[in-house]
């Protein structure tokens, strides 16, 4: 189940081992973990997924695998997150059945309503602020753009891209359903505390 109140999603850092950081994010109160390692082998992704899924169960959090529907099914993950360059959501839905969660990355209201028609359960939207996590040629969309996505669909919208303790309130003010971060946790001196601070903010700002 996707949390109904503003929540924290931790997306694993491509260049760091994912399981321990996922554990710390969960200890800090993250309610969704997305495993995203484009360069890992299928065997690695499967092994990590089994471990992170077990951790998520223990913390009543949702476990999502980026791109790889096969790994999500093999490891019994709660769902997948699909970019626009991944398998179409409609095709993924046929493989996953009605119960598993499908998240889709969108960059416009049009893509958002398309994703909903194709069977998405939540949307990722960004990048909201400047970020160095991914190569993003485009300029940040800014928090106000979240409102246009919210207007185009009834799905929860996760704000992503350069979100910090300082600017997270702006995304909530613009009706983000939650925030997704990589480096705000993975590159923090104390990842668990960084996650906890973000979660506290999400709870109190609401």
């Amino acid at each position: 189940m996707i949390p109904s109140k503003p929540f924290l999603c931790f997306i694993t850092d491509e260049s760091l081992p994912p399981v321990e950081l996922a554990r710390q994010a969960l200890e800090g109160g993250a309610l969704m973990i997305q495993l995203r390692h484009k360069c890992a082998t299928g065997a690695e992704l499967y092994r990590w997924s089994v471990e992170i899924q077990a951790l998520c169960r223990r913390h009543h959090a949702v476990f999502i695998v980026n791109d790889r529907v096969d790994i999500a099914i093999a490891a019994g993950a709660d769902g997948v997150h699909l970019g626009q360059q991944d398998l179409p959501a409609a095709a993924a839905r046929k493989l996953l059945g009605p119960d598993r969660i499908i998240g889709v990355s969108v960059s416009s209201p049009g893509e958002a309503s398309d994703a909903q028609k194709e069977g998405a359960d939540y949307l990722g939207f960004g990048h909201i602020f400047h970020t160095s996590s991914k190569e993003k040629p485009a300029a940040p969309v800014g928090p106000e753009a979240i409102l246009s996505i919210r207007a185009a669909t009834s799905l929860p919208v996760l704000a992503i891209g350069g979100i910090t303790l300082q600017n997270a309130p702006d995304t909530l003010r613009c009706k983000a359903s939650g925030i997704a971060v990589i480096r705000a946790i993975s590159r923090a001196a104390k990842p668990e505390e960084a996650a906890r601070d973000l979660v506290t903010l999400l709870q109190h700002d609401h």
Binding site: T41, G42, A43, D70, I73, A74, A75, L95
Partner: peptide, 14 residues
Amino acid sequence: LQESSCPPEKLGSL
């Protein structure tokens, strides 16, 4: 599948 792929017996219903 390769030796580095998801173990074939884990693919289940897929």
